[in-house]
Design a protein around this nucleic acid. Structure first.
Length: 234
DNA sequence: ACCCAGGGTCATA
DNA sequence: TATGACCATGGG
């Protein structure tokens, strides 16, 4: 089987296992997605939800102009459960100021994806993955999100060689799928994360009569073991 | 007591 | 350009 076809095989297998992942990124509106994307940096979603709950209780989530007026200590208190709370308070405020300056969702939704992406990257605290989370789940743009799980999956299936950078990973997935589709990308990313968190121990066949298997990629390999990890045979 | 989380920035070499 | 320190709380 051609390597790139296996990308579709994995998608179909995971899709069969976990369904359509409807509303995997829970949020009432686009701005809430953006807040979640910043809070989720290197943090488990359960912790993010606690912070979101605190924000929602105080009715801070509805709009950025509400958020920037909040007392800083109060905002830090809300974000505490999500970790890096001082840092994330800073980042969230920086993001809100940029967002308002540019005219909010109705204005930004008109921007072409590439311009929106580079501008997002210019906001302090917004890196490539956070920017793509926002583009994909808030602005509904067809960008494939690359996170740690995606890299591990790609590495363990020997889809890639060496250590490509973020954009190279992204290009690889988008070209392998050969279909620029926001719904597909959102679904695939959700499936990768859900399957990782399931901590599936046993290798399992991805399709009938196909030797492709997916091992657990929840945690990173220890440095001492890195050289011993075998790529899954195809 | 570890290890890890739906990362990003900044200082060094 | 490529590592490393740092950010910080919470769950397994």
């Amino acid at each position: 089987m051609p390597i790139k076809k296996t990308v579709w095989a994995v998608y179909h297998a995971l899709s069969k296992e976990y369904g359509d992942c409807k509303n995997w990124w829970p949020a009432d509106h686009a701005f809430e997605v953006m807040v979640g994307a910043i809070l989720a940096q290197n943090t488990s979603w359960a912790c993010v939800e606690k912070a979101i709950a605190r924000l929602r209780e105080r009715d801070y989530l509805f709009s950025p102009d509400r958020l920037i007026k909040v007392n800083r200590v109060d905002l830090e208190y809300c974000l505490r459960p999500s970790g890096y709370y001082r840092l994330k308070t800073q980042r969230l405020l920086a993001y809100c100021h940029w967002y308002l300056k540019e005219g909010g969702y109705e204005a930004l939704r008109q921007w072409p994806t590439e311009l929106l992406r580079v501008t997002l990257l210019g906001v302090n605290g917004i890196g490539p993955e956070t920017a793509d989370d926002i583009l994909l789940y808030a602005f509904k743009r067809p960008v494939f999100v690359i996170d740690a799980y995606t890299r591990r999956l790609g590495a363990r299936l020997a889809w890639v060689n060496g250590k490509p950078g973020y954009l190279a990973w992204q290009r690889w997935f988008e070209q392998a799928l050969n279909l620029s589709d926001q719904v597909l990308y959102a679904h695939y990313h959700a499936l990768i994360v859900i399957h990782a968190k399931a901590r599936c121990r046993e290798s399992k066949p991805v399709c009938d009569g196909c030797v492709l298997r997916v091992k657990c990629y929840y945690s990173a390999c220890r440095k001492s073991e890195k050289s011993t990890v075998e790529p899954i045979s195809l």
